[in-house]
Every structure is written in structure tokens, then in C-alpha cells.
Design a protein around this nucleic acid. Structure first.
Length: 427
RNA sequence: GUGGGUGUAGCUCAGUUGGUUAGAGCGUCUGGUUGUGGCCCAGAAGGUCGGCGGUUCGAACCCGCUCACUCACCCCA
């Protein structure tokens, strides 16, 4: 075949898909406990939604979006993240009129045109929450607590929460200015990237990994000094609430995020077993976004988790035994006669109607070969109903683990099925 | 977008300084006497050596281009 999955996209199949299922199941469970309801938004949106919310100067908007004209020439974009769509839906349906706080969660694919790498794909999957309608610092803390609780229930105990605050818009602007003042004398000796960052997005200089730049960055003013009174208090409360909930975190003064809409609290959860793309999740507060999108001033906070990366970590934690074990069959119906009998089809159907995980052999194979198949399928029982059994009006049921065989009388179809189900222990 | 690494059977990989019919392990299938699995034994199927072009008497091996995978930069989840 000459057609393969597109670059940066991939297929998920067993046994790996089982991990995905359990992640999603656990997420729904925890989110429900925290009062979040699911929101499903379209995967395609008007391009302007993202350019406005994420920011014109960001990498996502500049070079990573899947953007194309539709048949009427409108600019369409495959969503690169979830928050913008949630905010759009929130506004479009005037949800801010209903109640104080809306708690949503979402799960689904996102798209970014990037060079694939470990933990980075063009179609990737995120699950996340958005709390809309409050500026209270408690919800910043609750978001982080929910995130860490989720990881813990999945068995991830060694993830690290990194926390910082960039402050409100005015604090952010102040900070940006003070950084410019600080870097101005050194900028000519810094790396090329930093020079462009200096003009484009000064905050991002703090993220530079160049050792020479690093030295200059060390002396840069930290975000905390740039926060105004109110922002500092907000940040302080968040930290206090986190401590109260026994959530561990590390203050990371250099932490800045690539999306423009963040204000105040920003956080990231990293895991050491991931490689260079080590963020399992991240998020923060975005108090201006709803208003910027044309709604009322609305406080909001949220996070997103990279499911692809989460699964990578879980695969390393879980033993291969654990993932393979779950695949077993209750009964395998043999086909000792040459042709597929109607009796077997009806039997299979009846068993499945009673939620017995059953399957049957439809091929013309030797008895031995059929037994081998049963074994390969990890069948707990094998049901034998061939010519001999028909003559004697019985069914043979072999217990594969105990290697025992039981004879079940076949007086009527229903009593026989009943007995089989009873023996299998599914009643 | 920039760099490094890698493409040989379904999977994991060998393959000598270029030289006849390209191998192994696992997996798959079929047998090992009448209709009974795993273990063991025997056998079989399965490959455009990523693709295209070049060098050569001769290329899986050398060269060029291209595609894909992969890791890193960048950025993010």
C-alpha cells in the first residue's frame, strides 16, 4: 500500500488503546466529582477565533495552524487548542447570564503543524477544564488541585507542578518594560533568537537555554517584583490555598507561557520520564479573554493535559503484564463440523445477549487448530457441540484453566444456554 | 523552519573489503494418526532490501535526490 497516515498523525490500537480508554474514563470520573460538565465544540472554527485569542505574535498562530479556505473562501482553522472554542461557545450561548460559575471539561484532538518529535504530534489529544465566571484565587488553586489529583489517580506520583504569576495586564506590561530596560545594554551580545524575542516578546527571553544568555538572564528582575499589590495578593492566596490542600508546587520565576491570553497565575506540570517535551499539562488564568472576545468582564482559569504524553508516561509505569491481562474471552465455540451450523450462530447470539463475552470458530480447521485458537484468544471455556454431542443431546464445556470438561444436557436450547452461563459464572 | 541518527519478513534485528538462490529470533499457518490448547518437535508461507536515479561486469552495501520514521533545536500539551 502506498498510502500511510499523515506525518505527525498515528493510529492507536490494542493494547495501547486500553490505556487511552482508562485515561478518558478516569478523567470523566474526576471531572464529574469536581463539578465539571462536558462540552463538545467543533474541531473546525473561524480562523479569527484563534488569531484573536491566542495572539497574533505567538508561534501557534504564526506558523503552526492548519488553516485553509473552505469552498466559499472563508478561512477555516483546525483547532490548535481548546480554550478559545470554549470561550466562544460560552459567549455565543450567553452562558454568563445563567449562573456565577461554569465548569467545563473537554476531551479531543487538536492540530498544530509542527515538526514531530517525542511527545509532539500534528494531531494530538488534549483533555482540559475551564472555569468561567470567577476571579477568585481559590479556583486557580482548585484547577491545579484537580490536575494533580487526576494524575495521582492514574498512578503518576512523581509529576512536578511549576507555578508562577505574570500578573494582570498592567503588571504584565510593566514587567515587560522593566525587562526591556534590563536587557537593552546586553542585547547585542545575546543570541539571535533573543534579539528577535527582545522586540517580539520580551518575556520569552527568560526561556532561552543558551548558556551565555543564561548568565545575563540570571540578573533579570523576577516576575514577583513586577506584580502590583492586588496581583501579589492574588498570587499569595493561590499559594496559600494550594498548601491548605496539600498540593506541592515549585515556584518558577522564569515560567512564561506561549499564549497571549494568560494573566496572573500560570502553571505547568512536568514529568522527568518524558524527554525534551516534558510538559504533561499546563494552564493558567485568563481574565481578559472573555471580554476581549466581546463578552462581559469575566474571570476564568483552566488547564489542558496532553493525553499523548500522559499515555507515554503510563506505558512506562504500567507493566506490560497489566495491559495484556485484560484481554480474555469467556467462551469460544468450536466448529467441529465442516460447515458453520445455524445452531452455533443462535447459541453465540444468545450468550452475547446475556453479556457473555463469546466468540466462535467460523473456519474449517482441525480440532487441534481450533483449540490452539481458543488458547490464543485466552478463552476461559471452550464449548464443544459437534456431531457426537448432538447425537447424545449434550454440550461439552471445557474449562481451559482447570483442564476439566463438563457435560451439559441439551434438553432444550434455553435450558442449555442457561446452564452454560451458570457454569461460566456470568449469572 | 534548522540540524543529527535510522529505513532489510507482520515485529525486533543480523548481513564481511560491493560477488551466485538475502538470513535469524519472535509471530503466523500446517502437521506430530480417530475430536482436545499451552511446552516440545518438524515443516511451510511471508521480502519491489523505503522510493527514484547514478557509478560498476555486478549494489542491501558506494554516490545523489526524495519520502518516511526518530531525536534534538524551536515551541508547547
Amino acid at each position: 500500500m502506498d498510502i500511510a497516515s499523515l506525518r505527525g498523525t498515528y493510529d492507536i490500537f490494542p493494547p495501547q488503546s486500553r490505556i487511552w480508554e482508562s485515561v478518558e474514563l478516569e478523567a470523566r470520573r474526576i471531572f464529574n466529582v469536581y463539578g465539571c460538565s462536558e462540552i463538545r465544540t467543533p474541531i473546525i472554527e473561524d480562523t479569527r477565533l484563534f488569531t484573536r485569542s491566542i495572539g497574533e505574535g505567538t508561534d501557534i498562530v504564526n506558523k503552526e495552524m492548519y488553516t485553509f479556505p473552505d469552498r466559499k473562501g472563508r478561512s477555516i482553522t483546525l483547532r490548535p487548542e481548546g480554550t478559545a472554542s470554549v470561550v466562544r461557545a460560552y459567549l455565543q450561548h450567553s452562558l454568563y447570564k445563567d449562573q456565577g460559575l461554569c465548569r467545563f471539561f473537554y476531551i479531543g484532538p487538536m492540530f498544530r503543524y509542527e515538526r514531530p518529535q517525542a511527545g509532539r504530534n500534528r494531531q494530538f489529544y488534549q483533555l482540559g477544564t475551564e472555569f468561567l465566571g470567577s476571579t477568585h484565587p481559590y479556583y486557580d488553586a482548585e484547577s491545579i488541585a484537580l490536575l494533580t489529583t487526576f494524575f495521582k489517580t492514574l498512578g503518576i506520583t512523581d509529576a512536578v507542578v511549576k507555578l508562577n504569576s505574570v500578573g494582570s495586564r498592567s503588571s504584565k506590561e510593566n514587567y515587560s518594560l522593566s525587562l526591556k530596560d534590563y536587557f537593552a545594554p546586553f542585547i547585542k551580545s545575546m543570541c539571535e533568537d533573543c534579539i528577535t524575542r527582545f522586540e517580539k516578546n520580551t518575556l520569552r527571553i527568560l526561556d532561552c537555554k543558551n548558556p551565555a544568555c543564561r548568565e545575563t538572564i540570571k540578573g533579570a528582575p523576577s516576575t514577583e517584583h513586577a506584580l502590583n499589590q492586588e496581583d501579589a495578593e492574588h498570587f499569595h492566596s493561590v499559594k496559600e490555598y494550594l498548601c491548605a490542600m496539600n498540593v506541592r508546587f515549585e515556584i518558577e520565576p522564569r515560567l512564561v507561557r506561549g499564549l497571549d491570553y494568560y494573566t496572573n497565575t500560570i502553571f505547568e506540570v512536568v514529568h522527568t520520564r518524558l524527554g525534551s517535551q516534558d510538559a504533561l499539562g499546563g494552564g493558567g488564568r485568563y481574565n481578559n479573554l472573555v471580554e476581549e472576545m466581546g463578552g462581559p468582564s469575566t474571570g476564568a482559569v483552566g488547564f489542558a493535559v496532553g493525553i499523548d504524553r500522559l499515555v507515554m508516561v503510563l506505558e512506562k509505569i504500567l507493566s506490560s503484564q497489566e495491559t495484556a491481562l485484560s484481554d480474555s474471552l469467556d467462551v469460544y465455540i468450536l466448529n467441529p463440523n465442516d460447515s458453520l451450523s445455524a445452531d452455533h450462530i443462535v447459541m453465540l447470539h444468545a450468550l452475547r445477549s446475556c453479556f457473555v463475552k463469546a466468540d466462535m470458530c467460523t473456519e474449517q480447521k482441525s480440532f487441534k487448530a481450533q483449540m490452539r485458537t481458543a488458547n490464543k484468544l485466552n478463552a476461559r471455556f471452550v464449548l464443544i457441540h459437534g456431531e457426537d454431542e448432538i447425537r447424545q443431546s449434550i454440550i461439552k464445556l471445557k474449562n481451559m484453566t482447570q483442564k476439566t470438561e463438563e457435560i451439559i444436557p441439551y434438553t432444550t436450547f434455553y435450558t442449555a444456554v442457561e446452564k452454560v452461563i451458570e457454569r461460566i459464572g456470568k449469572k
